[in-house]
Amino acid sequence: MPYIVTYEDKEFRVSLKGVAQNLYEVKIEELDGEGNTVSEKTYTVDIVTKDFENFSVICNGNSYEVDVEDKGENNFEVFVNGEHFAFNLMDEFRKKMEEILHGGKERVASGEVRTSMPGKVTRVFVKEGDKVETDTPLLTIEAMKMENEFRAPKSGIVKTVKVKVGDVVNAGALLVVIE
């Protein structure tokens, strides 16, 4: 089953064929919006791993050190010789099912304010029902001695404030919803 990679609004189909122990033939096709192949490349890769996180790859005589972080929900962050790539990867069957179920990737730009870093909520400037403009300071989170201010992404009414002063939040936590 081939895999579909979604990377920076582009889709790629990756087909694997095991040819020997640790040896794969790989085809990478870049797809257009309809799923047609725009271009393709094939590689023969020699790949070994000890821990299923760190991989040593030899391809066309070049040595690559690759680290894979499985972020869950089919999101991956991968380092190749120190270069960073973030993308979504799932097998083609699942990808199709998801598209049928969720009708593609329509996602409305939301008034959800989330934190990309873990930390402690030090101040909250708004409460539910407050009217805010774009860039109105909402709250501050402190981590590793640095305080970061979160501002409103759009103007509207504060629908919910999910945190209070003193809360410790994880990366990705929802802080405030603006409608």
Binding site: V45, I47, V57, C59, V68
Partner: peptide, 16 residues
């Protein structure tokens, strides 16, 4: 080529 290696290894990771 680095980008492609990222895709290749993640796919193999998933298969493994």
């Amino acid at each position: 080529d680095l980008r492609d290696m990222a895709f290749v290894v993640a796919s193999i990771f998933e298969e493994m």
